[in-house]
């Protein structure tokens, strides 16, 4: 990162969902062209944070800047215009199941541009080729496996040549080989097309394969932020427990005390 231009800036974001404080003063700067990974345990607020960056959720307090525009104060039309600069790859891939693979990928192009259908068709072929799915244009999403759906979702996310791509658990539920393929795609896109990638994941293999920088979230706060090396050598006990996947440490799921037995005895 020679010239550190900030692509996304999250400033003191707070969010309460229901009666649970999910985000508790998050501050992050994500630079242009880098692959930034947000990791953390289930329920730590990492997906919620991602949804603040895409504008799906509005913070109770704080600001989210995309470039120099504050997503939280933009008008609806301006927000829509900003949204066209980014693509999002959903955990469930979120393909529209009434549309074929081809129509799913071409949807943003058909909706937002005046390109000729023939040109759109070529773009769709290129994007599907990029994710290694040639010849699947006419299938419906229900006929595809999980990994293929994820790749179609990725093709759709990059259909408009976005500046930023968000990934919500891109490798969750995939076999190791497909997961590695997806990781390679993410790397390729950000290295060669200089796309800024923001990846939410708890797949540690993936984190160390793709990340330029990593933020570890815990209980709605940024616990640690740095390069993968920094994270590996972190002194923080929670971070260490998380990357090694140990049951014992500061985060405990299993009651050590006898409260549980007491509960049963009553």
């Amino acid at each position: 990162m020679e010239d550190k231009k900030v692509a996304i800036s999250v400033q003191n974001v707070n969010k309460t969902l229901g009666d649970r404080k999910v985000l508790n003063g998050i501050n992050l700067d994500i630079y242009q062209g880098e692959t930034f990974v947000i990791m953390g345990g289930s329920g730590c607020g990492k997906s919620t944070l991602l949804r603040h960056m895409t504008g799906a959720l509005v913070p109770d307090k704080g600001k989210v800047f995309i470039g120099d525009r504050d997503l939280t104060t933009l008008s609806k039309d301006e927000k829509d215009r900003t949204k066209r600069k980014f693509g999002m790859c959903f955990q469930s891939s979120a393909l529209l199941d009434s549309l074929s693979v081809e129509d799913n990928v071409s949807l943003p192009l058909r909706e937002h541009t005046k390109l000729d259908p023939h040109i759109i068709n070529i773009i769709v072929k290129m994007k599907l080729g990029l994710v290694g799915l040639r010849g699947f244009e006419h299938l419906m999403p229900s006929m595809l496996s999980g990994g293929m759906k994820k790749r179609v979702g990725l093709a759709r996310a990059i259909a408009m040549d976005p500046e930023i791509v968000f990934y919500d658990e891109p490798t969750a539920g995939l076999d190791p080989i497909v997961a590695a393929v997806i990781d390679k795609l993410i790397l390729d896109l950000s290295k060669k097309l200089l796309i800024t990638s923001v990846v939410v994941t708890h797949d540690m293999n993936s984190v160390f394969r793709i990340a330029n920088r990593v933020a570890m979230l815990h209980a709605g706060r940024v616990l640690e932020i740095g390069t993968p090396e920094d994270i590996k050598n972190s002194k923080n006990a929670i971070v260490q427990q998380f990357i090694r996947g140990e049951t014992e440490g500061p985060v405990n799921f299993i009651d050590k005390g006898d409260d549980y037995l007491k509960d049963l005895a009553e």
Binding site: T54, G55, A56, K79, K83, M88, F90, Q91, D97, P108
Partner: peptide, 17 residues
């Protein structure tokens, strides 16, 4: 079911109302 499977959110993220 589109809402439950994130499809509505996907539309919104693509700036499709």
């Amino acid at each position: 079911s589109m809402k439950v499977t994130e499809q509505i959110e996907a539309l919104e993220t693509m700036a499709i109302h």
